[in-house]
Every structure is written in structure tokens, then in C-alpha cells.
């Protein structure tokens, strides 16, 4: 069954065309990777699906329902969790507090003025943190964590809403190679186990080819290839514009440095 369908998404920022006629579909339990060079329009596509940006034209369907232009909070309530390219967390709160906050929102108790926020949904939050391997850090301020750990917590936050669909914009940016593999393994496990669809982008090709069921290649806002990892790897155009780029690895390392 199709969980997410994007149909002819376009987005322009003034003169810049960030997405041009982007269409794709994603089934429950499937992992779809979007790859492409910097500025290709990956984040823009994520934001149009997640509601952070309204597309200039085109439609987004979630389980058959049109969610185009809905604000993020409503997209979230329909079962979409996400992480951001630059991690977005609540810096004044502890690690557990962040996840508890997401749980409070998920359970619709944000207007509760009676309960004690610090103890509400603590057990559930710890369980989610355990899933992503961050249980020991539960009571540390999130600002103290290494960036890679913050990304794991962000995953726990996204999972708190029991999503059907996960949007992960560069989930492993800023992590050491060993950590990346572990996080992707973890994500894949959770997704497959719960039947969650995952849309993710990565600059780390090892992670992409190891975990993606299918891959979408975006260049200058346009989809130039789509298919299984093998077919994408074999696609000559992809090789020319993306994988074969000289200095690509170096650029990747530079990006990592900037994020870390």
C-alpha cells in the first residue's frame, strides 16, 4: 500500500527553482533515500512533505489523504515524525525532557496546567531513549551532548508520536563512520519492525546503499533517476553528475567537519 505519494511538486524561491516536478511514492515499511549534491533540493522536498514549506504546485498524499499545505503540527498529528538537517531540539531541557515534551504533545496534554511536566511520560521517554541507545544520558542537558548523540535523541523525539512515516534529513551528519552504520541499522530495524515508512537523505553513500530499498536522485531540483540501489548505481547519468564527481569524497569530509 502507498503510504506517501508526492505528485509533481514544484517549489520556487524567487528565481531559484528548488524543486521541479518531483514525484515519488513510498510504501509502509519501505526505506526510500533521496540523494543529490548540495543545493539539489532535498531539504526543500522534505519540507514540502513535512509541511514546513508549501509547494508552489503539486500534491502530497499521506495514505491517500491530501496533506498539501497543511502546517507541520497537523502533518505530525497525521503520523509523520521528522528530524532536521540541523538538529532541532529544546536546548533548555534535559534529554528525557525533550522526549517527554514530544510525548506530552502527542497525547494532547500541552494545555494541561495541573500535572507535573517533569514526571509525565517519563517511563515511556526512557523506553524510547533506550531504543536509540541514549538511556544513560537521560538526565543530562541536551546542550552538553555530542552532535551525533543529539541526532539520536532527535530520532527518539520523532518516534514519540508513533509515526507511520519518518522524514530524516541527513540523520547521520556529524557522526563517526561506526556510529552512522549503527544508527542506520537501528532506524532500519525500527522501521521494518513497526512497518514505518522512512524517507531519508544522506551524503554517506555507504549508508544509503546499505539500507535504502529504493533511491531517488535529485539534481538541481529535478529527479534524474529512481530505482533500486543497483539500478541507480549502474545509471550512467547518475555516475556522471553525482557519484563520479571528482572531489566528492573530499566535499563530504568537509561537510562533516562543518557539522561536527
Amino acid at each position: 500500500m502507498t503510504l506517501l505519494a508526492a505528485e509533481g511538486l514544484n517549489k520556487r524561491f524567487g528565481g531559484v527553482v528548488a524543486a521541479k516536478d518531483v514525484s515519488f511514492a513510498l510504501a509502509a515499511g519501505e526505506m526510500l533515500a533521496i540523494i543529490g549534491p548540495n543545493g539539489a533540493g532535498k531539504s526543500t522536498t522534505f519540507n514540502m512533505v513535512g509541511g514546513q514549506l508549501a509547494p508552489s504546485s503539486g500534491r502530497v498524499l499521506l495514505a491517500g489523504r491530501d496533506i498539501t499545505g497543511l502546517p507541520p503540527r497537523e502533518v505530525c498529528r497525521l503520523g509523520v515524525g521528522r528530524t532536521f538537517q540541523v538538529a532541532q531540539t529544546f536546548l533548555s531541557m534535559s534529554v528525557a525532557g525533550n522526549v517527554q515534551m514530544a510525548l506530552i504533545a502527542h497525547h494532547g496534554r500541552t494545555r494541561d496546567v495541573v500535572a507535573d511536566a517533569a514526571s509525565l511520560y517519563r517511563a515511556e521517554a526512557l523506553a524510547l531513549l533506550a531504543q536509540v541507545g541514549m538511556a544513560e544520558a537521560a538526565d543530562r542537558p541536551i546542550g552538553e551532548l555530542a552532535y551525533g548523540d543529539v541526532k539520536r535523541v532527535e530520532l527518539a523525539i520523532a518516534l514519540a508520536a508513533a509515526p507511520k512515516l519518518l522524514l530524516m534529513d541527513e540523520p547521520t551528519a556529524g557522526m563517526a563512520p561506526r556510529e552512522r552504520a549503527a544508527l542506520m541499522q537501528l532506524t532500519a530495524g525500527i522501521a521494518r519492525g513497526k512497518g514505518i515508512g522512512v524517507l531519508f537523505t544522506e551524503h554517506d553513500m555507504d549508508a544509503v546503499f546499505a539500507h535504502a530499498d529504493r533511491i531517488l536522485v535529485l539534481v538541481r531540483g529535478e529527479v534524474i533517476a529512481e530505482g533500486s540501489p543497483e539500478s541507480v548505481r549502474a545509471n550512467p547519468e547518475v555516475q556522471r553528475v553525482y557519484l563520479g564527481q571528482s572531489g566528492h569524497k573530499a566535499a563530504l569530509r568537509a561537510r562533516r567537519g562543518a557539522h561536527g
Partner: peptide, 23 residues
């Protein structure tokens, strides 16, 4: 100290994140 207060802090810390968790 209640969830409502925490929600306000959350929105202050990161409006984007707050929005994305359904607030």
C-alpha cells in the same frame, strides 16, 4: 512546571521542533 509551561519553553527553544511534534 506544568506541561503548559514546558510547552511554552519548548516553543521558545525551537519553534520549528515544537511545530514538528504537533504543537
Amino acid at each position: 512546571y506544568a506541561p503548559f509551561g514546558a510547552t511554552l519553553r519548548a516553543a521558545r527553544d525551537s519553534e520549528q521542533r515544537a511545530d514538528a511534534i504537533g504543537i
